[in-house]
């Protein structure tokens, strides 16, 4: 098996184990629901996680993936983690939960073929992806902060406009 084949043969398992690791960051009573219901709108958290898992693995495995595609797939997932009750490290730390899986599933096979370099490159790609996620995470938090300001402004928009008019006097209307 060449390197690509090794990665592909493990995809299903690693993706499944990683999504389960992500699900276990949610309360115990909820994990079963996340695991079982497949509807993308009836169980959006699971759908987002599965989408991210597949793309994440392909990107780590060095498949031909466009950076924009990866970004789009991770975006929903990272945005979700950014507003759930996690600390930033808990929100993004899940990306590193893929490392022990790779070390268990991929490393032995690549080591046997003396392809350690290829393995280390894959791990580095995971690091880059986590950084990419960090960008998305930060942007999401900034959007959140901006929304709060914007909302305060919008609520009184007409009042502020009216008050301005009063200040300017009748001649300065609008």
């Amino acid at each position: 098996m060449n390197i690509q084949e090794i990665f592909r043969s493990q995809k299903n398992d690693v993706v499944r184990l990683w999504t389960e690791a992500v699900y276990s960051t949610y309360p115990f009573e909820t994990t079963g629901f996340l695991r079982t219901k497949r509807d993308p709108f009836g169980n959006p958290v699971a759908h987002m996680t599965r989408e991210a898992a597949g793309t994440l693995y392909d990107a780590v495995a060095g498949e031909e993936v466009e950076i924009d595609t990866v970004k789009a797939a991770l975006e929903r997932f990272v945005k979700l983690r950014a507003v759930q009750t996690f600390t930033p490290s808990q929100g993004l730390g899940v990306f590193y939960l893929m490392k022990p899986l790779l070390r268990e599933r991929i490393l032995p096979a690549l080591a046997a073929q003396a392809e350690l370099d290829a393995y280390l490159t894959a791990e580095s790609r995971l690091d880059s992806l986590a950084l990419l996620a960090f960008d998305i995470y930060t942007a999401a938090r900034e959007t959140l902060a901006e929304s709060r300001i914007k909302e305060i402004r919008n609520q009184h928009a007409q009042l502020a406009r009216w008050a301005q008019r009063l200040e300017e006097g009748p001649s300065g209307a609008r």
């Binding site: 276990s24 730390g93 939960l97 022990p100």
Partner: peptide, 8 residues
């Protein structure tokens, strides 16, 4: 990372 992520 495992310790950080473990929320329960």
């Amino acid at each position: 990372p495992q310790m950080l992520v473990a929320s329960r």
